[in-house]
Design a protein around this nucleic acid. Structure first.
Lengths: 204, 204
DNA sequence: GTCTATAGGATGATAGAC
DNA sequence: GTCTATCATCCTATAGAC
């Protein structure tokens, strides 16, 4: 999925962000190890060595992708938290903020790919730190009690898994799949569907 | 983690099972792409080409590992279901059956590694089919209602994630980590801890 | 049933030009 | 800021012996 042509020069910061977005997508699709720097370069419309040049190593690039994903997610949570004008209860606002991230392509899924690599010394440490950051936010800033935090995280991980498993379409028109989707994604199913069809378009 | 020396000849079936167990462990640790057939061969105490010879391809070996993990898991669920003598309510028996799988090393984590590769045409299809098999079991055989199924699966995915993230020890003695663990794993924390220390021993 | 040797194909990273 | 060329490594799978 090419995001831009290389052609022109760009400020380093802009190009970085562009590559980070492309990398988020590709890492989400094929995982940390399964993604090559060449895949990312192609998606970003730059040369492979330039990707390495900008981020030092593939590992560092992945760490940057994860860090960015966490920043985006926590910013969304903060937004939901501060939106006190709404008459929607806090728990639902937060849940919606989470599912809204599905708009941003591989954001949650790239995190999931980090969460499954806990035994990697570097990535594992970053994954734990990131997960705990979310936990503390829910507990301290959002003021969730322990059970609320647990339920919130559990629902989130189920969403992540169903995204990871790519169960966003009615595979083979299976009614069981549809039932599970509708049960797991109450009002948010439309959003997931929109994402899926959007992805199909992008693949031409 | 060497499970056995190669040395002697063995019936093909035994050696297969031995390698499947070793592969479950190694795939859980480093994921599908991140695991080499040589890693598995070393863990099983056989030569790398022999692993390929027995299973055809690395992909097929992973599929077999996933299939075996699902069989074991569903058998455990069936056991909990049939254990009607117990005065423990069904939901709790099933939950315990799930967490008990943590004894068996990488069983749940290897599944998680499949669940994150939904975009892979072959592995993704197997992962979806496996997930749906569990879903149908909970709904049809265990008789869970939709909300129960959802909660059960969500809790399971949270457990999987915390295992994936390797948050089984008090990293840096962080009290928040301990709190999260105790909140997420009510009575089962001891089991997780036992697993962790067992792994440490195995790593010498 | 199991091994050694090795071919064939990536892939991450570096060097250096523009 | 960005590219082309290229090296060194690693990895799956095959061939073929014991």
């Amino acid at each position: 999925m090419t995001i831009s042509a290389p052609v022109t020069r760009m400020k380093s910061g802009e190009r970085r962000e562009l590559i980070l977005e492309a990398a988020t997508e590709v890492f989400a699709e094929t995982g940390y190890v399964g993604t090559t720097t060449a895949d990312i370069a192609r998606a970003a419309g730059v040369s492979q060595p330039y990707v390495v040049r900008l981020f030092g190593t593939k590992e560092q690039l992945f760490l940057d992708v994860i860090q960015r994903a966490l920043d985006v997610l926590l910013a969304a949570f903060r937004g939901a938290l501060d939106d006190a004008t709404s008459d929607v209860p806090l728990g639902k606002r937060m849940a919606l903020a989470y599912v809204n991230q599905l708009n941003q392509h591989g954001l949650l899924l790239s995190l999931m790919h980090a969460f499954v690599l806990g035994r990697d010394p570097v990535i594992g440490a970053a994954a734990r730190a990131g997960f705990m950051k979310v936990y503390r936010f829910l507990r301290d800033d959002a003021g969730f009690d322990p059970l609320e935090v647990q339920n919130f995280l559990a629902s989130g991980m189920l969403v992540n898994t169903m995204i990871g498993i790519d169960m966003v379409e009615d595979y083979d028109g299976d009614p069981d799949v549809r039932e599970l989707m509708e049960c797991a994604f109450p009002e948010k199913l439309d959003m997931v569907r929109a994402l899926a069809s959007q992805r199909e378009q992008e693949q031409r």
